[in-house]
Design a protein around this nucleic acid. Structure first.
Length: 206
DNA sequence: CAGCGGATGTGCT
DNA sequence: GCACATCCGCTGG
C-alpha cells in the first residue's frame, strides 16, 4: 500500500474526487486494530462560487479549513447527530473539498455488512470520526487517518447530481457526485443508484 | 417496500 | 429562528 501524498490533493477538486474512488481509507487507533475501507462514492464541493459548498460564504470559522492547505480533514456536524468527513483539495489559499459518502468495508472488525458504511453519517460513525478529528493531516500516518492505493485497477465510474443540495440553485444539478455503479456499498435507495443508463440488473429478492 | 417525519445542535440570518 | 452535504423507525398499501 502506498500512502497518498499532498500533491495528490493539491489538484482540481473534481479530479481528486474521481481518483479517490477505489482508494483505501485507513483509520488507526491506539491499542486497537485499524479499520480499512475502499471508497465507492464521493462528492466534489468547490470554492465560493459553488452555492452548495460550505465555502460559499467565504472562510467562516467552520469552513476556513477548506481554504487552507490540501490533504487535511474537514469534519462538520449535520442535523445535530451525524458527522461528515471531507478531504481538503486545491492549493493552499483556494477552497475545495471532497465529501466521502460511502465505502466498502475491508477489515478491522467483524463488520461484513456491505451497507455498514453506505452513507456519510454511517461512514463517520463506523470509523469513529468526529469534529475532534477536524484538521488532521491525512498525509501523516501517525495522525490516525490516511488514504492509500493498493494497486487495484481503477473501478468503473458513474456521475450524478449531488445529494441533498436542492437549495443550491443551478448548482444542485451539476453532476459532481461520483460513484461505482451497481456497487452494494453505494448509499441511497435503488432508484438513486440507477442514474446511469446501464441496464438495471434485476435485484435478488427473497 | 415506499414514503414520511422526528431526532438534535451548530451556524448563519 | 430556521435551515441543514443524514439516518432510521414507523406507517400504510
Amino acid at each position: 500500500m502506498r500512502i497518498l501524498r499532498r500533491a495528490f490533493f493539491a489538484r482540481p477538486t473534481e479530479v481528486v474526487a474521481k481518483e479517490l474512488l477505489g482508494k483505501v481509507v485507513v483509520r488507526t487507533f491506539e491499542g486497537a486494530p485499524s479499520r480499512r475501507a475502499r471508497i465507492v462514492e464521493v462528492e466534489a464541493y468547490l470554492g465560493p462560487r459553488d452555492l452548495a459548498s460550505h465555502a460559499r460564504r467565504g472562510p467562516t470559522p467552520r469552513a476556513a479549513i477548506m481554504f487552507g492547505p490540501p490533504g487535511h480533514l474537514y469534519v462538520y456536524l449535520i442535523y445535530g447527530m451525524y458527522h461528515c468527513m471531507n478531504f481538503v483539495t486545491e492549493p493552499d489559499g483556494e477552497a475545495g473539498a471532497v465529501l466521502i459518502r460511502a465505502a466498502e468495508p475491508l477489515s478491522g472488525s467483524d463488520e461484513t455488512d456491505p451497507r455498514a458504511l453506505s452513507g456519510p453519517g454511517k461512514l463517520c460513525r463506523a470509523l469513529g470520526i468526529t469534529r475532534v478529528d477536524k484538521g488532521l493531516d491525512l498525509t501523516s500516518p501517525s495522525s490516525g487517518l490516511f488514504v492509500a492505493e493498493d494497486g487495484s485497477p481503477a473501478p468503473p465510474l458513474a456521475r450524478s447530481p449531488r445529494i441533498g443540495v436542492d437549495y443550491a440553485g443551478a448548482w444542485k444539478d451539476r453532476p459532481l457526485r461520483f460513484f461505482v455503479p451497481g456497487h452494494p456499498s453505494v448509499s441511497g435507495n435503488r432508484a438513486l443508484r440507477i442514474v446511469t443508463p446501464a441496464r438495471a440488473v434485476k435485484q435478488v429478492s427473497t
